[in-house]
Structures are given as structure tokens and as C-alpha cells.
Computed example of a mutant assay.
Amino acid sequence: MAGSVTVQSALTQFLSTDSLDRHRRKVCSRLMDCRTARMGGMEMRCDHCKARTVHYYGCRDRHCPQCQSRASQQWCERQRRSLLPVPYFHLVFTVPHALNGWVQVHPEVVYRRLFESVWNTLSQFGHTTKHLQGELGMTAVLHTWGQNLSRHVHVHCLIPGGVLTEAGEWHEAKHQYLFPVRALSRRFRGRMVSSLRRSVRTGELHRLTEPQAIDDVLKKVMQQDWVVYARPCLNQAETVVDYLARYTHRIAISNGRLLSQDGGRIMIRYVDYREGGRQKSLQLEGAEFVRRFLMHILPKGFMRIRHFGYLSNRTRRRKLTAIRQALQKPPEVDVEVKNGSESQRSWPCPRCEDGVVYMVRQIPRFKTVGRVTG
């Protein structure tokens, strides 16, 4: 990571004193190798001042704070093609902290059930709400952290304000909140708990071995009010993707939140929403900082950005065409935006500002003996 404070140094110290599973060890190796000679790169030369520079490649790991900015920009360009000229709603569904222990031992199961329960809840409301009665579309993003890097599992949902009926009609949402939040919360709670009970019966949660403790946890969370938060709708369609991009490629900690490093301690900045969004700072030991960071590494191959309903990948093109026809608003001319890092091999020279920098050779990546690499 850039700046005076680095995650790499803390990772190195942590790896030397603790054991990790192979997947997390690979992620740590990628983060430490990012933008270094181990990743390979390009040697560049200016055609005017003849200055030579070296540009090392990024690791492209989805947990890397250096690589996610570019990934977010590329994702935005792809998603703009799916925008509809309608208001959008942002909803957040949160899992109670009483289930954090289950997330610790079975993250892939709990996360999958969370996506399913959120979509089942919203889909049912879309089909049964009197003025809608059709199929919703949703883009959902999983976050697992709070501002202080603690475990705080929740899903951000961006939903166009309307449904597509079986007759091919578009029914627009009439309320500022899309659906009643309290009703959503109760339905979501019931769906999630029922889904987890089914996972227990089928043996998916096999690391939970005490039936009475399992039942006690599920009874406890059924007696709680689950948090569902609905933000005001977004009326400017052209800003919708940029708005969601703030959530899609966000990771547990970014460069901008790292304040200082004092020996083995790291100071981070965070927002305390319980005190009205007040800015605070928190100092953590290096090992504790890394432990919290590693809690939020997702299971291998798990998709944390998912599309549902008429925005699902399988039917998106056909159904969006039907919606635009119903709205009588054809899509704008599609202009393909190429990835500059893959197609471009020359840039204006940052030193002399008169020349053009060209790639003169590729620098191959290399592996250090005895080190786990991605």
C-alpha cells in the first residue's frame, strides 16, 4: 500500500508468527507483491528526454486496496449499459452479530443463505405488493466489515424503482421507501432463520456440533429486530452506477484510512455512526490489525457482487429491452470503452512533459523460493 503506513509490513510480521490456511496465505502474498518486481512489469523510455522508468504490475486481487480503484472504474463502464431511466433505491440488510460465530466457521454457507434470503424477501414483496405485482431487478454487494474492521455482515442492494410484469408492462414504484422497512425486516428475519435451519438439517453447517447451542442462537435472533435500512431513492440515472461503485469494490480498509504507524502499532480513521457519523481514530497492534483485516477475506471463488431478477446475467439483455420498450425510451448508443491499461502502451512523459513514454521491454515476474504465491 502506498504511503508511510503499509499493510505489507504488518502482514509480513503476522505471517512469521501465525499460521493461515492456503487461501489466505495466497492472498497475503499477492498483497505484499503488488506493484513490486515480483509481479513483473514494463520498462518505459521517453522518446524526447530518453528517461527510463519501470512500471510494475498490480496483483489484481479483489482484497487489494491498490487495485480496486481501477477495477471499480472498469465495472462502472460495463454496468452503464444496464441503466434504466427510473428512480433507484438503496437498501441495506444486516445480519445480527449473534451469528458472527457461524460466519467464522462457515462463511460460504452463511453468505450464500444471506443473498438468497434478501432476494426471496424482496422478490416476494415485488410480486405481492398491490401496485407492483411483477419481477424486481436487483444488484447486491456483500460487505463483511464495520468501520473499525470488526465483523459486520450486511448486503447493499440497488434496486430500480419498478417491476416487469408477465405481460411485459412496467409498473413504477409509488412510495419513497419502495417497501415498508419494518415489514421487510420481519420477512427477512424469517427467511434467513428458516434457511439456516435447513442448512443445519442438510449438514451444510457441519462444524456446528451442539444442537442445543444452535437452537438457542436461532431462537435468540428470532426475538431480535433485524436491521434493514432504506436510503432515499436516486433520481439521476447517470449517477446511479457511480453511487453503487462506492460499495462494489470497497474493501475492509483503504489507504486513506491509515493515519500513522508507531512501532508495531497502526492508527486508523473510522466513522462512528452511533454518534452521528463522527470521525474517530483507533490504534491497533500490528497483529490485531492484520487479524481483523484477514477476517474479511472471502472464500475462494465466492461472488460478492450478484444480479437478480430482470438484472440477472442470463436474462438481462432481453428483459431490459422489454422494459425500455414499455417505457418508450430506447437505450442510448452504446460506446465501448476499452481498458487503457491493456490496450495502451504509450503515455505523455511525466518528467519532460514534451515527449511520449513507450514500453521498450516486458519485465517477467518471478517467484521467491519457499513462498506461497498466487
Rank of each mutant, 00 (worst) to 15 (best):
E204C: 06
I214G: 03
C157N: 05
W170S: 01
F179E: 00
R182G: 01
Y177P: 01
Q224H: 10
Q176Y: 08
R189D: 00
R231G: 11
L164S: 01
L184S: 03
I214M: 07
I214A: 05
R207D: 07
T209W: 08
S199V: 07
R198I: 15
M192D: 03
H171S: 00
Q223T: 15
L158W: 03
Q224V: 12
L184V: 04
K220Q: 14
E210F: 12
E210T: 12
A213Q: 15
T202F: 09
V217L: 13
V228E: 04
H171R: 11
W226V: 03
R207W: 12
M222T: 15
V217W: 13
V217C: 14
S199T: 06
A230F: 05
G161V: 08
V228K: 02
R197N: 12
S199M: 07
H175A: 12
A230C: 14
G168I: 05
T202N: 09
L218K: 05
L178W: 03
I214Y: 09
V221L: 10
Q176I: 09
R201M: 08
P180R: 00
R187D: 00
V228Y: 13
A167N: 04
Q223M: 12
L218H: 05
S199A: 13
S194V: 06
R197V: 06
G190A: 05
M192Y: 13
G168R: 08
V193Y: 15
A230S: 11
L164N: 00
A167W: 06
A213F: 10
H156R: 05
S194Q: 09
D225E: 08
D215P: 03
R198V: 09
C157Q: 06
T165H: 03
R207P: 01
V221K: 06
R182Q: 12
D215C: 04
R186W: 13
R182H: 13
K220G: 02
L184I: 10
Y229K: 12
E172K: 09
Q176C: 10
A230M: 11
L184P: 02
E210N: 13
M192A: 04
A213K: 10
V193K: 06
R189N: 00
A213I: 13
P160K: 04
P180D: 04
P160T: 01
E166D: 06
R182F: 15
R191Y: 14
D225Q: 11
H206A: 15
I159P: 02
P180Y: 03
L205W: 05
F188C: 00
V163I: 07
K220E: 12
H175Q: 08
S194I: 05
V217A: 14
D225P: 00
S195C: 13
E166N: 07
W170C: 02
L164F: 02
F188M: 01
H156W: 05
H175S: 15
F188N: 00
A183S: 15
P232V: 09
K174Q: 14
L196Q: 00
L158K: 03
E166P: 00
G203L: 09
T165Y: 04
D216K: 15
R207G: 04
P232M: 07
D215Q: 14
A183Y: 11
D216I: 07
C157K: 07
R189C: 04
G168E: 02
L184T: 01
D215T: 10
R198N: 15
R201K: 11
H171G: 01
R182Y: 10
Q176P: 04
P232F: 10
R182N: 10
G162F: 10
Y229T: 12
H156E: 03
D215Y: 06
R231I: 07
V221T: 12
K174A: 11
D216M: 05
